[in-house]
Every structure is written in structure tokens, then in C-alpha cells.
Design a protein around this nucleic acid. Structure first.
Length: 355
DNA sequence: AAAGTCCCCAACCGCCACTTC
DNA sequence: AGAAGTGGCGGTTGGGGACTT
């Protein structure tokens, strides 16, 4: 069937709400509740469609809406939930009291997403973006010949690209081959988990990419590298950052990739032993659900990288992690670099609470 | 001071899922 | 069973303020 009009369009006002309209809507809902949004505008003497009234109420007039800047804890929660739920803004908003899905969506698109991109994290997959040089295609074409010298010669970029990046790529190549079978197994487990999540909760989990010709898969099961197709300028900035940070890279096959921050404030790749980071509210949810298999070696540590000492008794495991009490964008950039520690998501937990 | 550009966010649009008849 | 109605969601837009030239 075609789209049903939510209201009679003719004569209805659009655009910003006036204080008088707000007051009418508030008064009416206080008195009668919203009941049917379709009939509300007429009953409340508003020249608006019901949909517009509902939006105004849920996004602005509702008394329990929290105003003002997002706290670090909220930001951390958003990033973590987004990595689990994707763009399920309403589900994310349900875990953030006083915040609307619209507000969270806007904040994600205008702040967090850009910040993650600047840090070289794909905001869709929450994975480090190792495709700065379109490594995926290059690596796949050289799977049978992965020595660094041959590799860089093939690329013709040995004088342009930081050799550390090439070493990383070479390392990735060898690890990819060495771990191909392991990755397949992990992927099968992921698929099983995802299908369980989907069947149980009707939620499409964040997809972990299968090992394919299009993806360079890192050695940890949850971290993978996918080509990105847009945000070219931010990508360029990333390339420049890597090129001007000659000693930044190190990579070991069997550890998750995380970012650390060097003295210049540039995020570095460095192996870390501690796994995912969840803030306390998410940990509580996980604990409540009791669905994490205690025998599963994917169990994870749960310190909050973001919480201030006063707000959380849990301290970061590694010395490079930083507490943040300040609120500038740059400082948040730095803090967010630590968020990569979160991107190791346990594969067995119940997302029921989010829906 | 004026013009141009950038950025944020409130609001809209269109689709989908669910309910009612 | 299926058409119609409704609420809800996620993507997108554009007005306007902030900032730059």
C-alpha cells in the first residue's frame, strides 16, 4: 500500500515552533496526555500535523529531557553502544536518560563521527582504518609475494610512504596468511552469534567482515579493515599524520590493535594486552544478562577509560590511558584514542537490554 | 563592516512495522 | 487476507548563528 498521509497537508504550518505553539502543546498534553497524535493538533488548536507535534514533544518539550553538553560518560556510552547497535539511535537513546535519539544522532554526526575519522577509526565498523593507502587491494594482489622489498617495489611507493607502514602491511600480510584458518573459524562463530542475536532480538548486529578478497583482516577476530569510500579529506589528513609520525607504528600478530598517545598527542598503534572497554552501565547490563560464557576465552576486562577517578573506581590498565576532566575538542580527541580499546567486543552477550 | 563560508541542530521526509477493521 | 491508519525510526535538509576573509 502507498504511504498514508499523517495528516491533511493543506493549511498546516511547518518550520520552527513558536513559544505560543509550544505552550499550547504543553498545556494540552499536561491536561489530556498525548493519546492520539493524529487528533491532538485539532484538539489543541494547533495548525500542525500530528507527526510534527509528536516530534516537538519527544525531542524538545518533554520534561525529562536533559539539556546541555554531553558528558564524557555519555559520549563513551554512545560510542560503545553504537559499536554494538549501529545506527539504532532510539535504542541508544533508551540507555541514555534524558537524551533523545535525534540529539544523539546529531551529536554523533557532528562530533563523534568526525573525531573517529580524524583518529583513523571507521565510524561505521569501529575498526582502525588501515586502508589509508588502499592497502586492501594492494595486499590482496600480493598475497603470494609478501616480502617488504617486493611489496614496496610493487607499489612503487617506497620513497613516499613511511616504511613503518609498509612493515605493518607486510606484517598484516603474513599474519593474514598464518591466521586465515583461525579467522575463518572466528568468522563462523561470529556468524553464529549474529544469527542468534538476530533471531532472538530482531537486531542486526554490527557485522564483522568475513575474510575475503575485499577485506584485509587483522589477527584479532573483531578487528578488521575495510576500504572506505568517502571522507576523502579526513583520510588524507590521516595519511599526512602517518607520514609525519615516523616512529609511530608497531604491530604484533597476536594482539589487538589499539591506539596510544605519544608525547605530541598523535595516536600511535601499539599492542595492548587489555581487551575491550565498557563503561559501568554497559558492564552492568552485561552482568545482568549473565550471558557471557565464563569458559569463553574472549572474556574481557572492563575498566572505564573515560570515567574520572571520582566517578569510577576502576582505573585504566595501562599507563598510557588518560583521565579527562577538560572539555575541549582536542582533549576529547585524545581521550577518544583510548576508546579503541573498546573495539574488542565479546561475541556472546545479550543485547536484549538495549532494545 | 560586509560578504562568504562553515557548522550545528531542529525539523522534515519517507519508509517500515504494527494495529485495527 | 489485505487495505487503511498510526506511531516510530533513521536519513537528510536548510535556517541561522559563528567564524573567517
Amino acid at each position: 500500500m502507498g504511504r498514508a498521509p499523517c495528516c491533511e497537508k493543506n493549511g498546516l504550518k511547518k518550520g520552527p515552533w513558536t513559544p505560543e505553539e509550544d505552550q499550547k502543546l504543553l498545556d494540552y498534553i499536561k491536561k489530556h496526555g498525548h493519546g492520539s497524535w493524529r487528533t491532538l493538533p485539532k484538539n489543541a488548536d494547533l495548525q500542525r500535523c500530528g507527526k510534527s507535534c509528536r516530534l516537538r514533544w519527544t525531542n524538545y518539550l518533554r520534561p525529562d529531557i536533559k539539556r546541555g553538553r554531553f558528558s564524557f560518560e555519555e559520549e563513551e556510552t554512545i560510542i560503545q553502544l553504537h559499536s554494538i547497535l549501529g545506527n539504532k539511535w532510539s535504542a541508544i537513546a533508551a540507555r541514555l536518560p534524558g537524551r533523545t535519539d535525534n540529539e544523539i544522532k546529531n551529536y554523533w554526526n557532528t562530533h563523534i563521527r568526525k573525531r573517529l575519522l580524524r583518529m583513523g577509526i571507521d565510524p561505521v565498523t569501529h575498526s582502525p582504518r588501515l586502508d589509508l593507502l588502499d592497502l586492501s587491494s594492494v595486499l590482496n594482489s600480493t598475497l603470494c609475494n609478501s616480502s617488504q622489498s617486493n611489496f614496496s617495489r610493487l607499489l612503487g611507493i617506497q620513497h613516499v610512504v613511511n616504511p613503518e607502514i609498509l612493515r605493518l602491511a607486510t606484517s598484516l600480510l603474513s599474519s593474514q596468511r598464518a591466521n586465515q584458518e583461525c579467522i575463518r573459524q572466528n568468522h563462523q562463530e561470529n556468524q553464529l552469534y549474529n544469527s542468534q542475536v538476530h533471531d532472538q532480538f530482531g537486531v542486526q548486529p554490527v557485522q564483522l567482515q568475513p575474510p575475503s578478497q575485499e577485506n584485509v583482516t587483522c589477527t584479532t577476530p573483531s578487528i578488521h579493515c575495510t576500504p572506505f569510500l568517502d571522507d576523502a579529506q579526513l583520510m588524507q589528513a590521516n595519511v599526512e599524520q602517518f607520514q609525519t609520525s615516523p616512529t609511530s607504528f608497531s604491530y604484533q600478530n597476536t594482539e589487538p590493535i589499539v591506539w596510544e598517545q605519544n608525547a605530541e598527542g598523535i595516536e600511535d598503534y601499539a599492542p595492548q594486552l587489555d581487551y575491550g572497554y565498557f563503561n559501568q552501565s554497559i558492564v552492568d547490563l552485561l552482568n545482568e544478562n549473565q550471558n557471557i560464557d565464563s569458559n569463553d576465552n574472549q572474556n574481557f576486562s572492563v575498566p572505564s577509560v573515560l570515567s574520572t577517578p571520582s566517578s569510577s573506581p576502576i582505573t585504566p590498565l595501562n599507563s598510557s590511558s588518560t583521565y579527562f576532566n577538560s572539555s575541549t575538542e582536542d582533549e576529547r580527541d585524545s581521550y577518544c584514542s583510548n576508546m579503541l580499546k573498546f573495539y574488542e567486543i565479546p561475541r556472546t552477550f545479550n543485547v536484549n537490554g538495549y532494545m
